[in-house]
Design a protein around this nucleic acid. Sequence first.
DNA 1: TCGGATAGGCGCCCA
DNA 2: TGGGCGCTTATCCGA
Lengths: 240, 240
Amino acid sequence: MNLEVVEQALQANKTLVAFVSCTVSYSGRAETFLEEGDRLIIIKADNTVIIHQPEGNNPVNYMKPGSSVSVEQTDEGVIIHVLHEKEKAWLDITISKIHNMMSEKLVDGQKMELAGNEKDMSDYIRDNPTVIAADFTPYSREEHTDVGFIDVFGKDKNGAVVIECKRVTASLSAVDQLRRYVERVAAIKGTANITGIVAAPAITPNAAKMLASYNLTFVSVEPPKRLERWKKHQKSLGEF
Amino acid sequence: MNLEVVEQALQANKTLVAFVSCTVSYSGRAETFLEEGDRLIIIKADNTVIIHQPEGNNPVNYMKPGSSVSVEQTDEGVIIHVLHEKEKAWLDITISKIHNMMSEKLVDGQKMELAGNEKDMSDYIRDNPTVIAADFTPYSREEHTDVGFIDVFGKDKNGAVVIECKRVTASLSAVDQLRRYVERVAAIKGTANITGIVAAPAITPNAAKMLASYNLTFVSVEPPKRLERWKKHQKSLGEF
DNA sequence: TCGGATAGGCGCCCA
DNA sequence: TGGGCGCTTATCCGA
């Protein structure tokens, strides 16, 4: 271990990664402790600190950007102190052994482009209203009320239509949301004659049952672009 | 770059990290693309793949455990292909330059201990029922119904009591949940006389209004142990 | 900053 | 395996 290496890397706005044996203590929104073991530590230039165990997708501990990082040499080993004043949180990494480490100044101004989220889906419904019903006319997206905002709001021949979109299988909470909006619109319009629709690729059985009990309906809508590139990819694999 | 180094690391159940310049393509539940820039790539022994940009808490792209990883040398550079058959997802990392890399076999059988989550809070309510009401008697936690499970279920002098816990400020969705459970219990018991309580440190104004409109109530409960170690830490800092 | 909702959410538990 | 839901959720967006 070399304190100077760590401190120089941090000073130079580098990203530092280290394989270490360590224990981890965290206190903030909750409190955690992790016994000794081998982990990967990442310290970014913005003082984000991330600790990964050897398996799994998620970090076991982390501190968000804007922390302050300091390093201390003690009898127990090297301790990395991370403090986030604003969040009243701190993290201590007590390192008994550094197996390997490296640091690098990384330059990256790019932002990830993403397609296929729920906004794309409500856009798709607005632009292709017949996927809901032949006589459906959308008015607005993200209509705000004091009980939340309605994904797609419009009308059909019977009156107002409230649509809650989900890009994945709709669950009980989707029915909750829809019911909340429909009741609000009914209260505003002074009529119980509102059509409420969950638009999603599928719905769970319990949610479907609950939906029906409130005279709300489900319309199956696939999120746009889903799996297109996957299928293309599979096809190209098949050509080998 | 050295394909063999990467492949040997993966074969040997090592965790591999690399600073690279790359582009990233993903297709699965959505589709993403990330233009050329410097990133940190992590490939774990379980074939978890994580890509971090130089700043921020969260990975920009990832593939969950259980993927298959292969490496290919092309004219454009080295491509790391990650495929998750089951999830019908794939990720390609096209690397123009490797700045630095290292790998290590990590051994870690530990599991993080956590205090201060919602389970601790409902335990606390069960063990200290007077924080809800003087005459409250808890029966069970995680009582299952077909519309979800009730955090804490019990009785008071008026009848059944349903409690929904939140460790942070309760929102509209917490009221939704509680209402859903209360209605279900009322239907089962055949009575409308059910007491429904949101137990949380705070509640948003709109949620409070909605709660009141359904004759449900809010009880302020702090999640246990919150900030205790923070305060101790601050005190010890103050002693310097 | 707060409130509300989505997320390529993830991960855990339980039927 | 799917449903339901919490999460040190994070992140985005609008008021």
